[in-house]
Design a protein around this nucleic acid. Structure first.
Lengths: 354, 354
DNA sequence: CGCTTATGAGAAAACGCTTTCTCGGTAGTG
DNA sequence: CACTACCGAGAAAGCGTTTTCTCATAAGCG
């Protein structure tokens, strides 16, 4: 109080924008804004007495630094972006959740961008999100390999999920869908099924491609087993609508693209009076939380999906901090989760019904 | 080309940050950055020939304006924030999705903040998110009324979901859970049930409070019906673990807090060999997409949840644009969705079992 | 006691953009 | 032909911070 010069005015005039800025605090504390900034950032080259005065003024005015100004000065936003093809998909929701939680732990926020499965939008969304953030997680992009390779360099720091690139410094987290689908098919064959059908996912989905490759390998290993391909999608309705095609196929073991499709299919089969797994065995993929609660509980391949979101953040953090990353990316093995929706094959069915 | 003075240097020197900025474009086009800015923003007071030159330079350098600088200058971020108590909850996921989609249509992005049901974190998260964004959607906050009232003024523009405030200019979107639960209870009574049990949700949840109020009203209207209260939560496991309590209660009609709890409960009852709806009728709440695919399909009260997310954006947009809003907030009536999980009551059960 | 070296805080530049202000130049009008 | 009006583009001032630079003051040392 010795100086007595500060806080001349009782009323604080707010800046043009109406919000309290560093300038108001500086005036109230009788110091320059540089000093206020130093205090707010814990710079110890400030006289403790003055620091206390600044802190008091800041507290009284409820001053909170403007993050935009801060971002501009520091060149970072403490925000990362994520682009997903479909926010309605539990898989992407789980990744988002894992990512968001892990990032929050380190003081980062997450900006989301949903491409609604419109692959032509992805590059634009990704670019915009990236410029607003310190890094980007590109989740199962539907764009072509060529397009991906083209935009990847401009997106760094970048973490890819379920997609790979030749570019350096771009960690990829991929799930081994090929192996997973082979495990599921193997499980069905062990149960005596000899005629399987695969209910495929979205054509542009890379993970669908991996499943198809896995099934090719499986067919090569098991020449005695028939594996049919049926068109599909990635949601409930797809599975529900596939009932006729499934019954027509005469297959007794159905590999659905994912759990959602499997649930839709089971629901449809139930309506038709077809017993699962008595008449037909059904398997899903992902092991979403709902899978264990369906009736019958769904046999599926469990993907450690929330962990994947978290891992995405770990990789991103390493990139942002420019740390040496010993394991740039990783490969996740699905774990076979045998439940009640798969059972022994009954007498072979014929290809036509009704 | 008449001037011939621009583009003196073949090599463009990038700014300190390494990224291409407005300055590089200005140099390449031989104009000031003011002019570049004007061209980029479609200001028509620029000579068409110069504008073309600027556009060419921008395209060649792949110039994209830095959103942070832009935000600082314009005082807006084209981003809104949303705070949810639990990103794992399908209800909040759906709200997020509806919000994100609607906002994207108007060129806005969404920043998410998950409080993980830690109510003490909500105020901080909300404040931080708000400062980074042009507005905030506060979704079913768990904080006390007092705390809510205290922080609300500093959060404007603000849209509340499933919570109300006395502050002006804060639209509230609330679902009439009280009416919905009465409808469900009425449905069960119509089926002959006289002993109901309510599997409650999280204690701090306002929507749980509304359900309890609704049930009080219901009890007053139906003195002959017993309505028991059981402790619960909001997820699968809660429902699953409640099996014993439900069976002990002797109730034949169970009102679960939401669809998740109902599904967990049905799964548990199935494991115990209890028939739904033969022995016990179960109802959910929300009508999440999965509800129609459970076995038996779940009777529930449908909440137009994605529409709610969209409405949240409509309100937010009106606030941001400072439009007059004729309907600040709205009240949503759940729609009874009768499916197979509810059926006629069988002979009354005794309070003890086993 | 005078010179050099810390120390601490203000002035100013920087971050990248938008926008007001300013002014040279051209066209239009009496 | 002179004077005003207008148009288009550059200069410069913001937006709200952080950080470097600079300088006054005080302390340390011979």
């Amino acid at each position: 109080m010795a100086r007595g010069t500060y806080e001349r005015q009782a009323m604080v005039r707010r800046s043009a924008t109406g919000r309290i800025g560093i300038a108001e605090v500086a005036v109230k504390a009788g110091v320059s804004h540089a000093t206020v900034s130093r205090v707010m950032n814990g710079n110890f080259t400030v006289d403790p007495e003055i620091a206390a005065r600044v802190r008091a003024a800041a507290a009284e005015l409820k001053y909170q630094p403007n993050p935009v100004g801060r971002s501009l000065a520091l060149g970072k936003t403490d925000t990362i972006g994520i682009v997903v093809p479909d926010l309605a998909n539990p898989t992407f929701q789980a990744i988002l959740r894992g990512l968001s939680r892990a990032a929050a732990q380190d003081g980062y926020r997450v900006l989301i961008a949903d491409s609604f499965e419109v692959s032509s939008e992805e590059a634009i969304l990704a670019g915009e999100a990236r410029r607003r953030c310190d890094g980007l997680v590109l989740c199962a992009p539907r764009m072509s390999d060529a397009e991906l390779e083209e935009i990847v360099p401009s997106l760094h720091p970048l973490v890819l999920i379920n997609r790979t690139t030749t570019a350096a410094d771009v960690p990829s987290l991929v799930v081994d869908y090929g192996q997973g689908v082979q495990d599921l098919a193997g499980h069905l064959v062990d149960l005596g099924h000899t005629r399987l059908a695969f209910l495929a996912g979205p054509p542009r989905s890379a993970s669908n491609g991996l499943r198809l490759q896995g099934l090719e390998a499986f067919k090569a290993d098991h020449p005695q087993v028939e594996v049919l391909m049926l068109e599909g999608g990635s949601d409930f309705d797809t599975g529900h609508e596939a009932v006729d095609a499934v019954l027509d196929s005469g297959a007794t073991g159905i590999l659905a693209f994912n759990d959602l499709v499997a649930m839709g299919l089971m629901s449809g089969l139930h309506e038709r009076g077809v017993d699962v797994p008595g008449d037909i065995s059904v398997t899903g993929f992902d092991d979403i939380p709902f899978a264990r609660y369906t009736t019958p509980a769904l046999t599926t391949a469990a993907v450690p999906i929330t962990e994947l979101g978290q891992q995405a953040w770990e990789q991103m953090r390493a990139l942002i901090r420019k740390e040496e990353n010993d394991a740039p990316g990783s490969r996740y093995q699905p774990r076979l989760e045998i439940r009640a929706s798969s059972g022994p094959a009954k007498a072979p069915r014929t290809a036509t019904h009704g």
